[in-house]
Simulated assay, not measured.
Amino acid sequence: MFKKLRTKSKSDLIFDIFNAIILGVITLLVLYPLYFIVIASFSDPDAINTGQVIFFPKGFNTLGYQKIFEDTKIWRSYGNTIFYTLFGTGINIVLTMLFAYPLSRKDFSCRKLFTFFMMFTMYFQGGLMPTYILMQKMGLYDTPWVMVLLPAINVFNVIIAKTNIQNNIPDELYEAAIIDGCNHFQFFGKIIMPLSKSIIAVLVLYYGVAHWNEFMNGLVYLRDEGLYPLQLVLRGILVQNQASADMMADIESMMEQQKAAELIKYGLIIVSALPVLIIYPFLQKYFAKGVMVGAVKG
């Protein structure tokens, strides 16, 4: 049987055109600020302040990047952040999936109790000072482990992973595995983890970005500058340059310092965001699928 080819009606065509225009405008509004930061980081500060930089850089200038990368603390902090992100995300994924799996089992007798305690922590927390004292008592204060163990589990991510397992892994599969002599650990390692690649990709993105952007824990719990994450070092450089400009007695020197601080500001955004922007496209296809699957049937 041959199906008649349907041509779009006039109303459908108008809707498609209108929809494309609206989405195109929204896309430009989202992308332009990022594009502006890129061209501003290579432009002359005077051109930026006078509004000459709109679509293309004016007065090509790499002073901001030179001042950023001539500081050796940048490279050390990059290494620290990479370690915190990779090692911390690995811990996050393992603990989150290990926590989510038993909560997804309907035959787990303490399921409701643990779910209650987990949800309780979303609304009530100990606060900064009790956590600070706890980190000192546990010997984690001013160590790299505070950056990876303190944010080890996120309750929201556990809920997403639990829902994903409930919706994607049927009980019949578990029963078949038990008949074949599989225990819970084998079922988790050989069935749950391989079939949860989409949600794991989402969790990697969530946890990885959180670790990469983390600076508050470093600001509170780290005193050794050699352990500082990237975001904390970049923040320090920016604040230092702004403070130096404010304290300058010489007007001309102050103006030059402010120009350098302006370039550094845009360069810092590019330096800190570039790795995430590079990695995200590779995880994007899993991101939409994992979030949608994990969001259905709470």
Rank of each mutant, 00 (worst) to 15 (best):
G218R: 04
D46T: 13
L222M: 08
F120E: 09
G24C: 06
T89P: 06
L29I: 10
D12E: 15
G294R: 00
F36Y: 13
G64K: 02
P281L: 06
F15I: 12
V233K: 12
A152E: 02
I270W: 10
T163R: 04
D171P: 00
F99A: 11
P170A: 02
M248H: 04
K137C: 07
P130I: 07
P275V: 03
T81K: 08
I279S: 03
I191N: 08
N49V: 12
G126R: 12
S77C: 10
I169F: 05
G208H: 02
V233W: 10
E175I: 03
M122N: 09
F215P: 08
V30E: 03
R235A: 12
V94I: 15
K4P: 08
G88A: 08
R111W: 05
P194E: 01
F188E: 07
A273C: 14
Y35T: 04
F282M: 05
N217K: 10
I74T: 10
I26Y: 06
M248F: 09
T72C: 08
I133F: 11
Y65G: 09
A201W: 07
K265L: 13
G139H: 06
G218F: 01
M248V: 13
E175T: 04
I264P: 00
A249L: 14
I251S: 12
L268V: 15
I26E: 03
T121S: 15
N49D: 10
F117P: 00
I93V: 12
F187Q: 03
D71E: 13
F60D: 03
N49S: 13
F124I: 14
I179R: 11
T163G: 13
L277M: 11
M147F: 07
G298K: 10
A100H: 06
I68V: 11
Q257V: 00
M193N: 00
P57D: 02
Y280M: 10
F36D: 01
V293L: 14
N217Q: 13
G218L: 03
L230C: 00
S9K: 09
E256P: 01
P45S: 02
L103H: 05
I160C: 05
G181Y: 07
N19K: 12
G298N: 09
M248P: 03
N92I: 06
V293I: 15
E252R: 14
L219W: 01
Y101W: 10
F187N: 07
D171V: 15
K106L: 06
N164S: 12
P102H: 05
I278H: 00
L205F: 15
E70S: 14
Q186L: 11
D16N: 11
I160R: 00
V276K: 00
V239H: 10
K289Y: 08
V202G: 04
Y206T: 00
P45C: 07
N92A: 15
I200V: 13
L5A: 13
V296K: 02
N19P: 07
M255H: 10
L98W: 08
F185K: 05
N183P: 06
Q284P: 05
Q257L: 13
R235G: 14
F188W: 05
I269K: 11
D246L: 14
N61P: 05
